[in-house]
Amino acid sequence: MGSGSGVSCAVTLNTSLTPEQRALYQDVGQINHLLDSARTIALVGLSSDRQKASFFVAGYLKDEGYRIVPVNPKADIILGEKVYPDVASIPFPVDIVDIFRPAQEIDGIVDQAIARKEKGIDSPAIWMQLRLVNLAAAERSLAAGLTTIVDKCVKMEHGRYRGGLHFAGMNTEIISARKRKR
């Protein structure tokens, strides 16, 4: 009955991915590095509807100091930023292509991101938001050398690792006895 060594229990934090897929597409170190190093984030399928999840995410990222680039064929300006019709037409480098479109549309978006890399414009990370999972596209993106995150919300990951969601009771899985840096 004794305590024995640590009873460790895996926290899945809800995802449809298998453990192997999680290791590829939800690596904590990679997510943290990306959130630290990225400056410009294209949001594909950003809605101008204030109650849509994508609008929440974009407003949050903008507040947190990222440059947001709305991508939407049916709008001109969202959150004060110029809107581009697709990923191919963004005329400057982006660090993350954050996707809010259904799985079947993700192939085309990933193709455009890979083409940007081949042309030497940039090498954006591909980020598929919660439940927008296209594993074939993820495999291609990874094979093309793009960092690829699947089935995660960029706002929630940022909130989790930067402390904000901790105040909403989230299991951030951060365990450390060192003093926080900021």
Partner: peptide, 17 residues
Amino acid sequence: KFGFETRMVHAGHVPDA
């Protein structure tokens, strides 16, 4: 993946800056 006893005394609290 830290064990239960470790998380019992550490999880949720990182000393503030």
